[in-house]
Computed example of a mutant assay.
Amino acid sequence: MAKSKWETHVKDRLIEVEGWARDGLTDEQIAKNLGIAYSTLREYREKYSALSAALKRGKEVVDREVENALLKRALGYNYVEETTEELPNGTTKSKTVIKHISGDTTAQIFWLKNRKPDVWRDKTAIEHSGEIKGDNPFSNLTTEELKKVIFGDK
């Protein structure tokens, strides 16, 4: 009996799969790298826990790095910049400067909408219980009488 693609293409490459996931490749790209169809990768992910675990471990690292980078960008940060300047006498002078990157409001909004959606979502659902009261001077008119009011006697 012929071996399945699990045996020939995937089983012995789980370390590579984890690395590709850590590098940020999508499942579709990983399937292509393995030489299998994306649907086959999905099937194997369900069938073989070792593959599922390798993908999860790899992606977890990248997700954490992106979360940290987004938070850093949202809050702003300082960094050290070293420059070298050539002086007129032919010598060089090194200079170290601490620079500041301000917080990015787009990153802040994205973070808050995803971390606190009940408070920061764009649309809020408002429930109203009770009735709306008001005086409607036309409430006792028939459809025909309303048409006469709107269009006049035509």
Rank of each mutant, 00 (worst) to 15 (best):
G90Y: 10
K113P: 02
K95S: 00
L71Q: 04
T106R: 08
W111S: 00
L75K: 15
D104F: 04
A54D: 07
Y77K: 08
V80D: 07
E67C: 05
L55W: 10
T105Y: 06
A54Q: 07
V66Q: 10
K56R: 14
S52P: 05
E67S: 14
G90F: 09
L75E: 12
K95R: 08
E67M: 10
P88G: 10
E85F: 00
A54H: 08
E82C: 03
L112P: 10
E81A: 07
G103W: 07
E81F: 00
T92N: 13
L75Q: 14
E86W: 08
N68G: 06
L70V: 13
S102D: 12
E67H: 08
S49H: 12
S102F: 01
A50T: 10
G58V: 11
K95I: 03
R57P: 04
S94K: 14
T105V: 13
G90E: 14
R64Q: 09
V62A: 14
N89I: 04
N89E: 14
L55Q: 06
W111M: 00
A74C: 08
Y79M: 06
A107R: 02
Y77M: 08
V80E: 14
A69Y: 04
E86D: 11
W111R: 05
T83K: 02
D104M: 04
S49Q: 11
V80G: 06
L55C: 10
L87E: 11
A50G: 05
T83D: 01
F110D: 04
A107Q: 01
E85A: 02
E65Y: 05
N78S: 15
H100F: 06
S94N: 07
A74T: 11
K59S: 09
A107V: 03
G103Y: 00
A107C: 03
A107P: 00
T106D: 07
S49I: 10
I109K: 09
T83E: 02
E60C: 08
G76I: 13
G103V: 04
L55A: 11
S94E: 09
E67R: 13
Q108T: 11
K95A: 05
K72Y: 06
H100D: 01
R57M: 12
T92E: 14
F110G: 03
G103K: 02
G58D: 09
N78G: 07
T105Q: 12
I101Q: 03
N68D: 05
G103M: 03
T83R: 04
A53E: 15
Y77F: 15
V66L: 15
T91R: 14
